[in-house]
């Protein structure tokens, strides 16, 4: 049987893809890769069809042994990885495909330039779909590999027994990600639950990402956002990117595993084109929100798609 044996699970390594749809009304979130751009590039470089399940890594990443005749991998999102072959360790750059032999050990040590990185394998992993997706939903305990993060001793079966007979691809230059981005956001459905001063401060003042961060969302710290309406708020639906404000301080920027409904007013919603930037955020990052309208969000989405295609078009063949 061909696969990867997990020697060390890393901080939190999960199987992710584009996520599942159709069950929001039953409380099941979309899940899926937090940084969709790096995720898509990982599959593109590995030669996989879009939507193939990959590993999402948090720092430090996992250590895996190749228990297959060979395998082709691609790491994206962060800088580098180490391959150990017959006791010799060699550093490899990310953003390129690497062909591995039986017994090789893949080690992704600590990285600090992004919150998440992606490791794709050519052909993908042999795992069952749960409601049309292999994405792990940790809080629900389903999807991916037994509904949980990888740990020592796990065996990830590969769907393809051999590397493809196409050349290895590489990006000539790693994409440059901003660590303190400006996130474009549309005023939320309950923007008027906040004072005008709070609505202004939200878009003008910086916020800092706290350590309180997971796949559901992150607490951010910034100016006080005074509520104009008090009393109970009857829950309504949420989306990844929504900024919920439970009190006057420390709003929550929701991410892919967020609850499908929430009982706090939402002051703004980060546009879909900027969700990958939000997904990459590390604790301590300084962010700002810039107010945009729907038309600008639609343009940004088209530009984001164009940026992905432009990057993918620069891929060139190298020796594995």
């Amino acid at each position: 049987m061909s696969g990867f044996t997990v020697l060390d699970g890393g901080l939190q390594t999960t199987i992710q893809d584009v996520g599942r749809a159709g069950l929001l009304a039953l409380g099941v979130p979309r899940s899926g890769a937090l940084d969709a751009l790096s995720y898509r590039l990982a599959n593109r470089i590995a030669g996989n069809p879009p939507g193939t399940a990959v590993l999402e890594l948090r720092s430090p990443g996992p250590t895996l042994r190749v228990d297959a005749e060979n395998a082709r991998i691609a790491l994206t999102g962060t800088a580098a990885l180490t391959i150990e072959r017959n006791g010799d360790a060699q550093e490899w750059q990310a953003w390129r495909a690497i062909d591995l032999d039986q017994g090789d050990i893949i080690r992704v040590a600590g990285f600090s330039d992004t919150a998440v990185a992606y490791l794709a394998v050519a052909g993908g992993f042999e795992l069952p779909e749960v409601f049309g997706s292999r994405a792990t939903f940790l809080r629900g305990g389903f999807g991916g590999f037994e509904g949980r993060a990888l740990k020592e001793g796990d065996f990830l079966r590969l769907a393809a027994p051999h590397i493809p007979d196409t050349p290895c691809l590489t990006l000539p230059a790693a994409p440059r990600f901003v660590t303190s981005p400006v996130l474009r956001a549309i005023p939320g459905p309950q923007a008027d639950y906040f004072t005008v001063a709070a609505q202004t401060a939200f878009f003008e003042r910086p916020f800092t990402v706290t350590r309180d961060l997971d796949r559901m969302g992150m607490r951010i710290e910034g100016p006080e956002l005074e509520h104009a309406k008090t009393g109970d708020f009857a829950s309504d639906a949420t989306v990844p990117g929504a900024v919920q404000v439970p009190g006057a301080t420390r709003p929550i920027l929701l991410l892919n595993d967020c609850q499908t409904t929430g009982g706090y007013p939402k002051i703004a919603v980060v546009i879909s084109a900027d969700l990958p930037s939000a997904g990459r955020l590390m604790p301590g990052a300084e962010i700002r929100f810039r107010k945009v309208g729907i038309t600008e969000a639609e343009e940004a989405r088209a530009e984001g798609e164009h940026a992905y295609r432009s990057l993918a078009n620069t891929l060139i063949a190298v020796r594995g």
């Binding site: 829950s235 309504d236 639906a237 499908t260 409904t261 879909s272």
Partner: peptide
């Protein structure tokens, strides 16, 4: 794509590549 009923509202999730908001 899908709709989500809540106490106060119906959320309509859609594909912006298929229809403009």
């Amino acid at each position: 794509r899908e709709t989500v009923p809540t106490f106060r509202a119906l959320a309509v999730h859609f594909d912006p590549d298929k229809i403009r908001q």
